[in-house]
């Protein structure tokens, strides 16, 4: 069985909040394991905050779309946006070994996304930037067991 939803957040300043709310309802309705849901929550927040703050110069309303798909094995998040080709994943990973007072503030978000997801890929498709994030359900079940123990 396959379930999913699609949401246009456009240039809505509360787009992150609306996407979070839509995903929360979806996760609850389909009993997505807490560990998987939380990883998706983080990825969604990082990518939308990134898109809505930096990536939206000149974007038309409605041209940023969040798609979510669930089957027996995985949750797939697809973020589609218009604009010139831009792959946020190519940004270099930050140095996470620096002491607290030597750390530049920020720059961690995409690193978190790459590490939390099982698969992350960028595609240029029909003149649009498409980010596909995959999280396997098996990892989340393990996470839940740790929490229960």
């Amino acid at each position: 069985m396959r379930h999913g939803f699609e949401l246009c957040v456009g240039v809505d300043p509360d787009g992150v909040g609306k996407a979070n709310a839509a995903f929360a309802g979806f996760a609850e309705a389909h009993a997505i394991p807490a560990g998987v849901r939380r990883s998706m929550n983080v990825a969604l927040d990082e990518l939308l905050a990134n898109e809505l703050s930096h990536g939206n110069a000149g974007r038309q309303a409605g041209s940023l779309t969040v798609g979510m798909e669930l089957d027996q094995e995985r949750v797939v998040l697809t973020l589609t946006s218009e604009g010139p080709p831009f792959d946020p994943l190519r940004r270099a990973a930050p140095d996470t070994t620096l002491p607290v007072d030597k750390r530049p503030v920020g720059g961690l978000g995409l690193h978190l996304v790459r590490e939390l997801m099982d698969e992350v890929r960028y595609e240029r498709r029909n003149g649009q930037n498409v980010l596909v994030l995959v999280k396997l359900l098996a990892g989340g079940q393990q996470n839940d067991q740790v929490e229960a123990g």
Partner: peptide, 18 residues
């Protein structure tokens, strides 16, 4: 910290600086 928050702390290196 729940396991997910702990995981984010470990990935980001925050578990060693906080």
């Amino acid at each position: 910290l729940n396991p997910s928050v702990r995981e984010v702390f470990e990935i980001s290196g925050f578990s060693t600086i906080l």
